[in-house]
């Protein structure tokens, strides 16, 4: 009980702290201006604090990462649970989960050294881009998406699959028409947790995204995310600039809370459904 409380109080303290540090400047600038203004000039004589480009950057990168991470992750999970010899699974699944243990700065470094020059050479533009960040993040979220989806698929009662096969459906028809439907809410939770990972990642993103201050117009444009904005400037900031970075943190916090709550709701729904059977 006490231990659980310590974790919760840490959360409460962090929440109180970032809101206390960030809210005053949000009120001063105005919530609408803070979120929808394009101008981020924190150290000007007449500073302006608008984080719209960063919000768009975060959304673009997260969306890109989801396309890559979710499609690959889902495919991995389906192959692992349905079309793979159990002995192969016992090697492959831990290997995929090992990906989660690689530090993000290593992902970023590989991105800068290999991915960015490739994109610059073959697709043009900067190389540092939403695309590069999406690819790196998509691979970083693979283990989350894969292992939760595997669990969701394995939780589907055997009788569902057996029944479908008995009715003459092929293995593939059974998988995508019966099992994926039955595991739907679990898969949704996997997707949303992966999304939370992508939106919150910082180090790897700073290294490959270029961090400019404009809204990205194509996937080959650089961008700046909420997290990279905080990490880039926090070391030097003072006064209102620092408060504005905390306020950026507040926005990020609200987004991540919303995402996690959604994930929780989905997985509860999933459990209830599984329990009823």
């Amino acid at each position: 009980m006490l231990v659980a409380f310590s974790a919760v109080s840490a959360l409460a303290l962090i929440t109180a702290f970032i809101f206390r540090a960030g809210l005053p400047i949000m009120m001063k600038v105005g919530l609408g201006d803070f979120i929808f203004s394009n101008e981020w000039r924190p150290t000007d004589a007449s500073p302006s604090f608008g984080i719209f480009p960063m919000i768009m950057g975060s959304l673009a990168v997260t969306a890109g990462a989801m396309v890559i991470g979710v499609s690959l992750g889902l495919a991995c999970a389906i192959v692992l649970t349905q079309f793979c010899h159990p002995r192969a699974v016992s090697v492959l699944k831990p290997a995929i989960e090992l990906l989660a243990g690689i530090p993000s700065v290593v992902f970023g470094f590989i991105g800068v050294v290999i991915l960015v020059p490739l994109i610059r050479q073959y697709l043009g533009g900067w190389g540092l881009s939403v695309l590069a960040a999406s690819l790196v993040l998509g691979i970083m979220m693979l283990p989350t998406v894969t292992s939760i989806t595997v669990d969701a698929l394995q939780a589907v009662p055997r009788s569902y699959g057996d029944g479908s096969i008995a009715l003459g459906a092929t293995k593939w028809q059974t998988t995508h028409m019966v099992l994926l439907k039955a595991a739907g809410s679990g898969i949704m939770a996997a997707v949303i947790l992966g999304m939370g990972r992508a939106i919150g990642e910082t180090m790897a993103v700073i290294m490959v995204i270029g961090n400019w201050l404009d809204v990205p117009h194509s996937i080959l444009d650089p961008a700046r995310t909420l997290t990279s904005n905080i990490a880039l400037e926090m070391g030097y900031s003072a006064g209102e600039h620092r408060q504005a970075l905390f306020a950026t943190g507040v926005v990020l916090f609200v987004i991540i809370m919303a995402v996690n709550t959604a994930a929780l709701a989905f997985s509860r729904h999933h459990l209830r459904k599984a329990g009823m059977r």
Binding site: R120, G127, L128, G210, W212, L213, R224
Partner: peptide, 20 residues
């Protein structure tokens, strides 16, 4: 310009200019 890419160290700037 807002469309200037921002790097957080001399090393990162150097790496980028050397290759682009």
């Amino acid at each position: 310009s807002r469309r200037a890419v921002t790097q957080e160290s001399n090393g990162a700037v150097k790496e980028l200019v050397r290759n682009d």
